[in-house]
């Protein structure tokens, strides 16, 4: 990715699904631009198209039409036809994911969970994993398994895991949905802090209170981003 480039540049993104014989338009031409270090919140009710947007900019799915570039790599439009392997590599090198229900591997310790994304690179980085866990305030929980951690601690492990590959973009889908208010604030503070270090953060939520922390708020409804 070159300096000055947007981490995400999406123009007129459309995503349609066919459910049975019915055609569902999940996204109807959205524009999203996210600069390095920008903290954006994608705000909208359930079914508005938040997760679909995250899936597209996270290279988990391809848009039906529109132009999309992620971390300098053309994904859609202008004849771009990335292979599945290229998308895997892009996610591995540039994108970190955080999910509402943490999705940690139950048999692994916090340290091991954080290092999971390194396996695909045949690498280990125990030093960096430890550093990240210390950073998210879990220095005392390195060898604990998920069933020995609280919800907030599990989400912190998930954040550390998302950061292990030093991504340019952090995508968080309702990361505070299962957390209490205090823990929610702590996680938000952590994400805001990461954005100040240059990581672009796109957080999807239906919680209006979270919008106050963001540099940018993208209100989405019925697959369209409303003017703010």
């Amino acid at each position: 990715m070159n300096d000055g480039e947007y981490v995400i540049q999406a123009r007129d993104l459309v995503k349609t699904y066919t459910v049975g014989k019915r055609r569902v338009e999940a996204l109807r031409g959205i524009d999203v631009s996210l600069a390095p270090g920008e903290f954006a919140v994608l705000l909208g009710p359930s079914g508005a198209g938040k997760t679909t947007t995250l899936n597209l900019v996270g290279c988990l799915d391809l848009p039906t039409s529109g132009d999309l570039t992620v971390a300098g790599h053309p994904i859609s439009g202008n004849g771009a036809r990335p292979t599945e392997a290229a998308l895997d590599l892009l996610r591995r090198q540039h994108i970190g994911f955080i999910f509402a229900d943490f999705n940690l591997l139950l048999t692994l310790t916090a340290m091991e969970n954080v290092q999971v994304p390194l396996i695909w690179r045949d690498a280990t980085a125990p030093g960096r994993a430890r550093q990240l866990l210390e950073r998210v305030g879990l220095a005392h929980r390195l060898t604990h398994r998920p069933d020995e951690l609280s919800g907030g601690e599990m989400q912190r492990v998930a954040v550390a895991r998302a950061l292990i590959n030093q991504p340019d973009l952090l995508l968080a889908d309702e990361p505070t949905a299962n957390l209490d208010t205090r823990t929610r604030d702590e996680i938000l503070e952590l994400l805001a802090e990461l954005s100040t270090e240059g990581v672009a953060v796109l957080l999807a939520t239906h919680d209006h209170e979270l919008a106050d922390r963001a540099d940018t708020v993208l209100r989405i409804e019925d697959g369209v981003i409303a003017d703010d």
Binding site: Q93, I95, F97, F99, W120
Partner: peptide, 16 residues
Amino acid sequence: TREIGMMKAMGAGRLD
């Protein structure tokens, strides 16, 4: 299934 999906989201390819 969910766990494998998560691994793929984190960059694991089919071959991995």
